[in-house]
Design a protein around this nucleic acid. Structure first.
Length: 579
RNA sequence: GGCCCCGUCGUCUAGCCCGGUCUAGGACACCACCCUUUCACGGUGGGGACAUGGGUUCGAAUCCCAUCGGGGUCACCA
């Protein structure tokens, strides 16, 4: 039997970074063992699932380089296609990888369970159950649904048949699994044997009143019928596993291998969730309001362009809407924490940095580099060749953004200039279109800028920030006062004098001589002749062309700017300072 | 609260299974110095951990137990 792993997200938003790691490990395990990696969409929550989310998740995975052998993919024309088992595999085709389309299959197994006396319709309303649960909690008891006395475990008796008829007649009901009263052992490949005592499990719901299966039921049937051999998922699912094992036994299915991976959590030990964005924005707003009493929901809403009522609810913690969090963050000029793959992509992270970093959260190749250090930089190919369950750890890992950033910077710098330029440009066109337009269509210009920016960019967005001087008007006079003071006026106006010399010398360069190398040596010469070295010369020019004391190296900067702009800026600066 | 999992530098981890080679190694972050046209990069060095307490043993980060701590989960969500 071929090894089959699966990643089975529910399409309720973008791909979570933790989900990305699950998918990555499943993918790598399949690759390493010559198996197949399957994608399945768990959209049985009709209210929260959407096709757009499913599409987004598939795209996120694709962007990361995690490509599935089985299940949905997005075709060139944008439609969703499905890879299925072919005749040569000897397996029946799956047909549908979206659970919502598999309801008849679930119902068929459900009936089998009912007729075996291992499942039964229950007619209590959600409210009734909820009330019982609350009462139990109030009495400090663990709530377990009490199996009706007329239900006989493993027998399709008259009472069960009567219930089944009521259900078939259309009476509103759920179907519950008659859980076994026996110890259940989960043989986990990471954690070892995990035992659950008899009676821990109650008769949980396996089909909702709306006719959709509950997660546990759909998963078990799908894993069996789709040929899944290895279930690798986050540890938050560990306590679900005995249910799955019990269901498999009741249905006569095999039990796949399980491997539960450690959780990825925030630096403050909290769970990394989409809601963190709302929490972050709420805190920012509240901090601002505490600092400045004149800021209230009423003043903030129009200023940030948010509906006042929505904002008030948001601040009260009654909703976690991104419609509020995003404009709030923009207004306070803060970046929301990145939680989903899309966030990282938008903020200029490279997929290879993300997969590399995330692979190290809870897994480690256990290899050394030639100079004896832990090997931790690797690519997808390496993962596909070296990944194994044995080296998955048991302890949850905190998501250290600083280290990711460092990985990203390294990944950027490992790129050849040309490739970086092309990828940076494509990213800018997608996420920084104003900047992309300002740079223009010239490939040479992009490459020159990219060369200047690459060594100091930790993200693609950093490259834009570093190039911001390009967008400055040649006539702009808003020079950073501190920079003016230090680099132009100090030492009796030394910088200004040097800048005048530079202006003359630069002005005499022929257009063909306007290259990074020649500009650089010109600056060097001026510095030498003035006896100051090139430092003060450089800083004076930097202030003149960028308005600040920080910019990419000058040769490249001036070259990209071009003689007309560069000279104009120097003159502007000189004029302003002469006044 | 019940059940379940986990516990090596601030963080990710190597080492643990097969006790001695561990005065516990690496990476990120931090600090200092060097390099340097700014900012970065880079280089060198530094501080920094076996949760605690008991065992077992000649010897424990490594094996056992307890305590403490952290997390997960207890839905007609997945």
């Amino acid at each position: 039997m071929p090894i089959v792993t699966r990643f089975a997200p529910s399409p309720t938003g973008h791909l979570h970074i933790g989900g990305a790691r699950s998918a990555l490990f499943c993918w790598a395990f399949a690759r390493k063992n010559g198996g197949r990696f399957m994608l399945r969409i768990e959209d049985t929550d009709a209210a929260r699932s959407s096709l757009e989310s499913a599409r987004g998740i598939i795209e996120d995975l694709h962007w990361l380089g995690i490509v599935n052998d089985l299940g949905p993919y997005i075709a060139r024309d944008g439609s969703i296609g499905q890879h299925d088992w072919d005749a040569a595999s000897g397996r029946p085709p799956v047909g549908e990888f979206f659970q919502a389309k598999r309801v008849p299959i679930y119902n068929q197994y459900l009936e089998q369970l009912v007729r075996a006396g291992r499942a039964y319709p229950a007619f209590e309303s959600n409210e009734e159950i909820e009330a019982q649960r609350k009462a139990a909690v109030a009495a400090k008891q663990t709530y377990r649904y009490p199996r009706p006395s007329e239900i006989e475990y493993g027998k399709f008796n008259a009472a069960l048949e009567a219930r089944w008829r009521r259900a078939l007649a259309g009476e509103r009901h759920v179907v519950r699994f008659a859980a076994p009263h026996e110890e259940i052992v989960v043989h986990d490949q990471v954690l070892g044997d995990v035992k659950y005592a008899p009676g821990e499990m109650d008769d949980f719901v396996i089909r909702k009143a709306d006719g959709f299966p509950i997660y546990h039921f759909a998963v078990v049937i799908d894993d069996e019928t789709m040929g899944v051999t290895h279930v690798m998922r986050a540890q938050e699912h560990l306590n679900n596993t005995p249910r799955h094992v019990a269901l498999q036994k009741a249905l006569g299915f095999r039990t796949p291998f399980y491997a539960h991976m450690p959780l990825i959590i925030n630096m403050d030990n909290s769970k990394m969730s989409k809601r963190d964005k709302a929490k972050f924005a709420r805190k920012a707003a509240k901090d601002a309001m505490a600092k400045d009493r004149s800021i209230t929901a009423a003043t903030l809403a129009p200023a940030a362009g948010i509906d006042e009522k929505l904002l008030a609810q948001f601040l009260a913690g009654e909703n976690d809407s991104l419609e509020v969090a995003q404009p709030l963050a923009r207004y306070f000029k803060l970046a929301l924490p990145e939680i989903e793959v899309w966030d990282f992509r938008q903020n200029g992270y490279l997929p290879e940095a993300i997969t590399n970093f995330v692979a190290l959260l809870g897994w480690n190749p256990g290899l050394k580099t030639p100079d004896g250090k832990d090997l931790e930089k690797f690519d997808m190919k390496f993962l596909a060749e070296h990944f194994g369950i044995e080296r998955i750890g048991k302890t949850s890992s905190k998501f250290d953004r600083a280290k990711l950033l460092s990985f990203n910077a390294d990944a950027i710098n490992a790129l050849p200039d040309e490739e970086f330029a092309a990828r940076w440009r494509a990213w800018c066109e997608e996420f920084e279109s104003d900047f992309a337009k300002a740079v223009g269509p010239s490939e040479g210009r992009w490459l020159a800028l990219a060369r200047a920016v690459k060594p100091r960019a930790k993200t693609l967005r950093d490259g834009v920030r570093a190039s911001a001087f390009l967008l400055r008007s040649d006539a702009a006079r808003d020079f950073d006062p501190a920079a003016i003071e230090k680099n132009l006026k100090a030492n009796g106006g030394q910088g200004l004098g040097l800048l005048r010399t530079v202006e003359e010398r630069l002005g005499s360069l022929a257009p063909a001589e306007w290259t990074p190398a020649l500009i650089h040596s010109l600056i060097e010469q001026v510095g030498q002749q003035a006896g100051t070295g090139m430092g003060p010369v450089s800083q004076a020019i930097r202030v003149a062309i960028s308005g600040a004391a920080v910019s990419p190296p000058l040769g490249e900067s001036l070259a990209v700017l071009g003689p007309v702009s560069a000279m104009a800026r120097i003159r502007t600066c000189l004029e302003q300072q002469a006044v």
